[in-house]
Nucleic acid binder design. Structure first.
Lengths: 347, 347
DNA sequence: CTCAAAATGAGTTGCGTACCTCAAAAAACC
DNA sequence: GGTTTTTTGAGGTACGCAACTCATTTTGAG
């Protein structure tokens, strides 16, 4: 009934004996230390592979001595999504402490490339790994590459710098997120024609631009009977978003759907309800917060498209740890999904 | 800039010194061993709490010596969802090996309560933890309770036995999944009236019954203009499902939506396309497989509601491990979400 | 063949905990 | 008071590996 036999856990000593070398040599090979002839390296590696040997992580961790230090470079200010990520890191504190991992927050103005780059430079040499909410800019790219060069493991978080040499990106594909929003708008309004409003924080933000791109892509190719209104920019602020949407609703009585690309959802919702049109208009926004949750339950918001902040926090830590240990990454586990949240599948 | 100072990793020796006792006594307290006066226990525990001391997991794991053994009791046969869970466990093998964890598959006819109960009984004493796809039946419940009594950690997987003393359930809320399906049907068909067909494997399966319950709940309360046809039972078989749906489509030209609660989605899709009505009918089914993925991309299937099998596999292992180590469980991490998958947010 | 350089062996120490034994001290009992 | 029982201390060993030293062997260059 039970398959797989219990494999007799091999140790480094067994590998050394079988390869006909000493423990010291196996250790040199395992850690890419110099002073071993290439054919000896090959022989040891073959023995390791043949036996599917894995060093015991607990023993390795214990023998290291010093604790690992990770830094999380996050935006200053009151961005709720970022605050949620920080909160989930806080919830992990016992988990981290039991593994002797030190995670430190470094709050910076990530929207100023030179400030962010300078901030990254100061971390060099002091940390085993860095997770950074990165702005895609040449200066930032260079700073990331410098960190990588210095042996620090680097993970971009939420926002990527694909052209850099960062080891991993933890976040969603924002073009796909925009496409998902478009498909939902198209499917939920049905066949009736009408106008669709779209508001973002700024087109200059990479994630917003990508979402808009994906959204327009789907609307053009599949729901061409819908009339997309010119993009509004609400700077992710509630007040400004509310004013813009209020004015727009007054001008166009035939708006049937509304897509908010960034933050400011509370303002948009307020404009909708004050116009008394929250039930007729299909409203789609991003992220799950206490506020969007309430709006979903009320029915004002129809769908929230979100990425799971807890998952991102934990994935970033796990990926940094795996990188530091030279362990393989469980890619399916660390891949962040685009969540479609409606009233009935709220977590 | 950097917050949190690097805490000077305490050890058991530090706790012993501060509490004014020996290492042996701290060890006795930590492992609930007898032979310590109650006020000494209190004093030691207070010292541990005051310093927020956490034993170093790596050291603890190394000192244990023997490896942990977990058993996964899964259904025999070709259920694709279960096969995916097994596949993801296979992908973890390096991760498991590096931690000296032995995970063994035990395939059983989980639908026969006595067979399942007998199977569970044989595991007693041989495993540190058991994950089981459980049928909710008194005999099974008793077998689970016996295991718990014997000190084995027990996690129910995919299907729960809430009345048992299992330590944890890894899976989704199927009533909520059914409600989600209902809401999607209602929202996607729009305002036009029509008939809605629903087919399940069997009403006797707890998860199917729960989904049907949730589905009907939403349809009755929110989309009462839709006419729900009597439930069909396809026994999760493609051929039978295809025949039933073909006949139904012939009889009712005004079906506008179709919900498949269980397996057999391929058969249902075939009936739809052969009737040439795959574009008009909103089709919602469960689980993401190679086949449902194809149907989503084709547009035959509009939404797949799924639970992530990889997540369930990993969550079950992590929960068993945390239980075995007497570590807290990161509940937000182990909570399985109800995924709404459309063409544009396929992982 | 000689000598320097490179490669390897052999060994040690320490990481923090679990688990064990045995002796000593303290407490509880009569 | 003495005796038994309970509690505590002291210490050791082992777990598997990292990281290091130093001696020895092998290799290659001249």
């Amino acid at each position: 009934m039970a398959e797989e036999t219990v494999s007799a856990a091999l140790t480094l000593k067994d590998i050394a004996r079988e390869a006909g070398v000493s423990l010291a040599t196996v250790d040199r090979v395992l850690h890419n230390r110099p002073g071993v002839r290439s054919d000896t390296v090959r022989r040891v590696k073959e023995t390791i592979a043949r036996n599917a040997f894995q060093p015991h992580v607990a023993a390795a961790e214990l023998a290291r001595g010093r604790a690992r230090r990770f830094a999380f470079v996050m935006p200053t200010g009151a961005n709720p999504f970022m605050q949620q990520i920080e909160a989930y890191l806080g919830e992990m504190s016992a988990w981290l402490a039991a593994r002797r991992l030190n995670v430190e927050m470094v709050n910076t103005d990530v929207f100023d490339p030179s400030v962010l780059a300078a901030s990254l430079e100061t971390l060099a040499g002091n940390y085993d790994g860095v997770a950074v909410v990165a702005l895609d800019h040449p200066g930032v790219r260079a700073a990331i590459n410098d960190l990588v060069e210095a042996g620090t493991k680097v993970v971009t978080l939420v926002s990527d710098v694909p052209s850099s040499r960062r080891h991993h990106y933890v976040g969603i594909d924002n073009i796909a997120a925009g496409r998902t929003a478009g498909a939902l708008v198209g499917r939920l309004v049905g066949e009736k024609p009408g106008k669709v409003a779209i508001i973002a924080g700024s087109q200059g933000l990479r994630d917003h631009a990508e979402r808009i791109f994906g959204f327009n892509q789907v609307m053009a190719s599949e729901f061409s009977h819908l009339d997309i209104l010119p993009l509004l920019e609400g700077r992710d602020e509630d007040d400004r978003s509310e004013q813009l949407i209020s004015r727009l609703l007054g001008k166009h009585p035939d708006i049937i759907s509304l897509y908010n690309v960034g933050a400011g959802t509370q303002g948009v919702a307020k404009a909708l309800t004050e116009a008394g049109r929250e039930k007729q208009i299909v409203f789609i926004a991003h992220d799950l917060t206490a506020m969007t949750r309430k709006l979903l339950l009320q029915g004002t918001l129809d769908v929230a498209i979100s990425q799971n902040p807890g998952h991102e926090a934990r994935a970033a830590v796990r990926v940094l740890l795996s990188l530091a240990r030279n362990e393989p990454i469980l890619s399916e586990q660390e891949n962040i999904r685009i969540d479609i949240l409606m009233r009935d599948n709220l977590p």
